[in-house]
């Protein structure tokens, strides 16, 4: 981007923060016009910083930046939407952060993706009102297709023949549903029920708001979630940090076998 002005305005969602030195932070922003980028906020960890609250992760802000030698520098920031209800609920917060991590991992720097930007804000708005947490599934499916990894749901991912109505094998490696004759060729997969396939098909064309209206029972949601998790793992080739965190909220705290007394090995606080 050589044609960029020395300073510019852009709107974006803050995806994550990393601390830098004594009082600075680097923020990863997902912007409608600029795509994903990192920028530095100077002195933002001092108590009197003007920008601090406007640059919290999950905030949608109007940003003013000056071009820097390496990374651009924030000069002003003002909140557009703080998505407060998301922050006040542990499960909503975890899902929102998981989706932000997906955006971070599925995008490359400075490549604008306006549709994905809208999708992220739709999700955050949903979580900020009373939409069920299942909208995370719609987000997963849509980010896959917006990034060019559309899951094949109508025809067989291997031979292209029409999939008859019924429980069908879903193979993340093949890229979608696999018809019965092709089943031996798909290396791994899981059997999806007709209902789960219908949910996925609906999510393909529905907005987040429409998907929020869909009532999914727990078993069905888990089925859809596992299939999508397979597909995402296939693309990213790793687990997401926030995804692991979401899982850890669901189970009781494990005994890590650490003894309290005399244990001098402790992990330092992150980011310092």
């Amino acid at each position: 981007m050589t044609g960029r002005a020395r300073s510019y305005n852009t709107e974006g969602v803050i995806l994550r923060r990393r601390n830098l030195g004594e009082a600075d932070s680097i923020f990863t922003v997902f912007s409608a016009r600029e795509g994903k980028f990192d920028a530095i906020a100077r002195g933002v960890r001092k108590p009197r910083s003007h920008m601090r609250g406007h640059l919290e992760p999950l905030t949608r802000s109007q940003l003013h930046l000056a071009q820097g030698r390496n990374l651009d520098v924030f000069t002003q920031a003002e909140t557009i939407a703080a998505y407060r209800a998301v922050r006040d609920d542990l499960d909503r917060l975890a899902l929102a952060l998981y989706c932000c991590e997906l955006v971070d991992r599925f995008t490359v720097e400075r490549a604008p993706q306006p549709l994905l930007y809208d999708l992220l804000n739709e999700l955050l708005e949903g979580l900020d009102s009373d939409a069920p947490l299942t909208i995370g599934r719609a987000f997963e499916l849509r980010i896959l297709s917006l990034s060019g990894f559309e899951i094949q749901l109508s025809a067989c991912a291997l031979c292209g023949s029409r999939i008859p109505e019924g429980d069908t094998l879903f193979s993340a490696m093949a890229g979608g549903l696999v018809c019965d004759p092709c089943r031996p060729k798909a290396e791994t997969g899981r059997l999806l029920s007709v209902r789960a396939i219908k949910v996925l098909r609906f999510a393909r064309s529905a907005t987040i708001g429409q998907f929020a209206g869909l009532r999914l029972d727990e078993a069905l949601e888990r089925e859809v979630q596992r299939a999508l998790a397979d597909a995402i793992r296939q693309v990213l080739d790793r687990e997401t940090n926030a995804g692991r965190y979401v899982d850890s909220l669901a189970r009781p705290l494990r005994d890590t076998g650490r003894t309290a007394a005399g244990d001098v090995q402790w992990s330092p606080p992150s980011g310092s």
Partner: peptide
Amino acid sequence: LHGVLNPMDGVGPEDIRVRELIV
């Protein structure tokens, strides 16, 4: 606690001293 939950960096409840507090 010796740390803080940081979902984005994968720091979960088992990585900080929460359990000791519960006990």
